[in-house]
Design a binder for these strands. Structure first.
Lengths: 229, 229
DNA sequence: TACAGAAACTGACTTCAAGTCATTCATTCA
DNA sequence: TGAATGAATGACTTGAAGTCAGTTTCTGTA
């Protein structure tokens, strides 16, 4: 008889529906202002029940965040699944991260809120490991592509691909974070358009790691992209 | 009679000694784990007294943070006070930020913890403005130097100096943050030395914004630095 | 169908920390 | 000296995370 299996499924879907509720509340209020009471209400459960499924508020938060990481991961995976010249893939990957920010701002914010080590006190080890898993997947995709670029002679071979990945990622991340929270400050007080700064920064980075051949392909790519509009 | 003045001074020194206490506790525990009770104890005062001098825990935190910003500012100012060729000044400024991280880790952490917009709910407007003041001073120093570099033909004139400043700062900041919190992760799981990554990143950035003349001066500078060791 | 035991759920309660405020204490100066 | 002002106190209020003894619901068996 499949009772045990059904129960198992019900338990899973209960877990999911708690996450749905938590996501709604976290998106609206952020980690600090969200309350377990409110999440419980949203999930139509009592507060105590939440703790049968998740160890702490932070655990809930991390679980929602992992959803976001998975979306980003899926975006990356669908890009590398399409066979394309290296430069096209690389540019798509870089753009995908910006697109992720634009389409999933709430997840993006959660992601980077959680980077702060200060929060990790309440997170269970399983959750941390789960997060690291998705994280590794992302890095591996990026690093594999950069290795391909080196192999094909498009990227400088004297720079470690993992280092390149970190540099690209860091660069884009901080600028997106600033765009998210300080866009007006920079526009009004410093007369700087951060969106433009992001573009400049990415171009500078790219040009500094491409070989001559890579640069040529990059210029051709940009040119053909422009004609396609 | 100087009674009023003396009282004023006493009040100031009380404010200072509260900050001393707060700093000690925040350095040890961070914003989240520090308690007002503990700060009060450290300051040998009752909790309520703290609120006569500071509006909230966050206000206290920001005040300590501003001390850190001022230290960094002073470091920058003493560098630009010395007359030096442009490249030397630029390299010193960049290095100063890393030195600041190394010598004042606690301040550095506070600085970046506070970047997160989530925390600003409790901070009084005066404090925010005070923070912005110091921040502006830092940016102005950086931007002024980059303008000098452009004027002297060492930096590309097609890139806005404010944008350059943001790009440099962002780049270095995220890498230092990672060095601070994920050094071992990258070493062990990805076999990457983030200290080295930081150097690589800074060199790439520099080379991509320097003119030919600037690059020449940079190479000479590096060479002479090496000989001086 | 009745019922015992297991599983799921509940919400009042405990704990802890931020922030408040009526009261107490200290200082000044007329 | 003592009234008035200002500084300091700590018990109290508030609010939220997390707990757990008790209640309800479900399940498999007689």
């Amino acid at each position: 008889m499949g009772t045990a299996e059904r129960k198992e499924r019900e338990k899973e879907s209960r877990k999911e529906s708690i996450i749905d509720a938590a996501q709604k509340v976290f998106f609206e209020k952020g980690l600090l202002l969200a309350t377990m009471e409110e999440i419980a209400e949203q999930a139509e459960l009592a507060k105590g029940t939440l703790y049968l499924y998740y160890k702490s508020k932070e655990d809930l938060y991390l679980t929602v965040m992992i959803r976001g990481l998975n979306i980003l991961c899926a975006m990356f995976e669908s890009i590398i699944a399409e066979p394309m010249p290296f430069i096209a893939t690389l540019v798509r990957l870089i753009d995908a991260y910006t697109t992720f920010y634009e389409h999933h701002k709430n997840y993006f914010r959660m992601l980077h809120f959680f980077q702060m080590p200060q929060f990790h006190k309440q997170v269970s080890d399983e959750m941390k490991e789960a997060g690291r898993q998705v994280d590794s997947r992302l890095w591996n995709i990026a690093i594999a592509q950069l290795k391909r670029g080196i192999r094909e002679g498009k990227l400088r071979s004297d720079i470690d691909p993992a280092e390149m990945a970190i540099i690209f990622w860091s660069n884009t991340t901080t600028l997106l974070l600033r765009i998210d929270s300080q866009l007006d400050f920079w526009k009004d007080r410093m007369n700087v358009d951060l969106q433009h700064t992001l573009k400049v920064s990415q171009t500078l980075m790219l040009e500094s790691v491409l070989t001559e051949e890579g640069k040529k392909e990059y210029r051709e790519f940009i040119y053909s992209e422009m004609r396609n509009r």
